[in-house]
Write a protein that binds this DNA or RNA. Structure first.
Lengths: 338, 338
DNA sequence: AAACAAACTGACAGCGCTGTCATCTCAATT
DNA sequence: AATTGAGATGACAGCGCTGTCAGTTTGTTT
């Protein structure tokens, strides 16, 4: 027995195909009694609309694309789960599309997704969302896009951001309050705008407390565990080593903790370490990591809502800001000499 | 300027629509010169076939579904990346579908995906792949399925597995070779068949070396970091505590390491710990974790190939087995008294 | 050179929906 | 009772492809 089509339902309910379509799509202007007839016919035949047929007829795929190029599994999973939550609620599917932001053909690759009618819109996550050229080309091609990034060009497309700079500022202040004056910073990947903002927060806090930024205390990392470990190595080898290290993300902070372990430094007694992101590793290491939690899945959930609004032609320029919160764990404590 | 359709290409190339379709789908029986004409017309018009139109006409979505219910981000990401690699190569898209294996309506939910023509086939990962009822219903509904699980019913549908039992056996032997005789085991979630097999490997190794299995040394965990930490707590509180702990997965092993840290036990000098999976945390903790690496993304890559073969009506009952390898890191060493 | 098979190509009818627009219904108004 | 118009419904033409099958060309055989 073949699957029921919209015609079967229409015949059984004694209405036209179009009315069934109205009911299925929750369109207005259907009499309540008619709606019920149709609904019971749908139930009786166990009818499910064919996704491909509606896509073709309506000229939209009911699929959103999630683009990312991020080595952190937990970040990606969080983004996915938020986006999926919205998608399910709103009747959309989600196509995940990891890709390399360094690939020369990335713009072509992404446009191709849209040109084939595979997706109705795109969510860009860092660092892709920070690629000006990519965003511009997509906007120009009239592809609905939402960015998960802080932004200056507020008008160009909807976006969702967190106040990374503010959170990093607060974290730095906490370390200062604990008596640390020499606080090392392991900076994240320069292409990743949100991570760069964390450095600005650190700088600003030092500035506000009238502590000169010692360039020797700032190391350039690349978001990875290994880079964090190498940077910490250098910081700890300094004659006048820092008593606290603030890393631009948790992976690098975890690397710093390992480097300290290997030097036999006890934490937090001799050294405090703070991270950013609250990835799972943050509470799986010893000592557990003081860090900043971002509402990643809330952000992507919101991003999908903005994206659908944009697809449905609602006002552009929508935006959303969300707050981070600091999680104090075992890895931070009073400065040694205090 | 609207997007080019297959008719535009046909007109420009001076052939019929159908011939363009043949070229696009790489069907045989097209003369080389014709193919070239068509290809250059495609290039000139920058033509991309509409996914929805081909889905409707061909009655397949060119999308596969990946079902999972696994709290480990790194596992999920690995599975995704392998599956995506195959999908891209073979012209398919991948729909990710996290779901709860404890949900009462899961079968309904999954069947609905297929009934709507959203996916042409499904990849089931543990623990969903171990749900006999679910698998049976899908097979009965003639849904192409591949399981990422060890299996007894070899005939029922294609599957890809690893030799978890063998790897756990070997790991246990290594610990025995290091002089450990009291080896604790933290068992994984009983619903997760592959993890259960690891326990069998442990038992078998003890058996082969004529060491009686002490039930006090076996704790029941649930795959999570916290459960591992609690189990280790109990093992280490034993009057006659083990000198080594083998956990059914890395998260639990990481929990065990933290528990040991909190007791001030030094590893590996006083206690060896081994895990299974080689998740990122394995080399981000201190001491870094001796574990077993599974070719997860290779497995899911292979699974997609088997699935497409099954969709295309090729011989059923296909299977694939892949090997694990042991990674010796800092967390294991000689037994203390040796 | 005729006969035949194999390779190649095209005409056409849908696939199962949605958008458009015309039509119909019926309560509210005059 | 006639008029009106918003609300409710339906007829119909595609959306852009693929499958089927018939027709045409080419190469091979005797």
């Amino acid at each position: 027995m073949a699957r029921a089509t919209i015609d079967d339902v229409a015949a059984l309910a004694g209405v036209s195909m179009k009315t069934v379509s109205r009911v299925v799509n929750k369109e207005p202007n259907v009499r309540a009694t008619t709606r019920e007839k149709v609904e019971s016919a749908i139930a009786e035949l166990d009818y499910r609309p064919s996704q491909s047929a509606r896509s073709l007829a309506a000229n939209r795929s009911y699929v959103l694309g999630l683009l990312y190029d991020n080595p952190s599994a937990s970040y990606v999973i969080d983004v996915q789960s938020g986006a999926l939550a919205s998608c399910r609620r709103l009747g959309y599917d989600l196509l995940i599309h990891p890709c390399s932001h360094e690939s020369a053909s990335i713009i072509e690759e992404v446009l191709s997704l849209v040109r084939q009618n595979r997706v109705d819109g795109l969510i860009l996550t860092p660092p892709l969302s920070d690629m000006v050229e990519l965003v511009h080309q997509l906007v120009e091609a009239k592809v609905p896009v939402v960015r998960l990034s802080p932004t200056e060009d507020k008008k160009i497309c909807p976006y969702v951001q967190t106040n990374d700079q503010q959170a990093a500022y607060e974290m730095t202040c906490r370390l200062l309050d604990l008596g640390h004056t020499r606080i090392g910073f392991i900076a994240g990947h320069p292409d990743h705008k949100a991570v760069v903002q964390r450095f600005l927060g650190y700088k600003q806090a030092l500035d506000d407390r009238a502590i000169a930024l010692d360039p020797a205390l700032v190391e350039q990392g690349y978001n990875s565990f290994d880079s964090g470990s190498e940077c910490a190595e250098r910081l700890l080898a300094l004659a006048d080593a820092p008593t606290a290290i603030f890393a631009g993300n948790d992976d690098m902070a975890a690397g710093a903790i390992i480097a300290a372990h290997h030097r036999g430094i006890s934490m937090p007694a001799e050294l405090s370490i703070a991270g950013f992101d609250d990835t799972p590793v943050a509470h799986q290491i010893y000592p557990s990591l003081t860090t900043v939690r971002q509402p990643i899945s809330d952000m992507s959930e919101r991003a999908v809502e903005l994206l659908l609004r944009s697809i449905d032609g609602k006002p552009k320029g929508a935006e959303a800001s969300m707050d981070c919160c600091i999680l104090e764990r075992e890895s931070t404590g009073k400065a040694p000499s205090v």
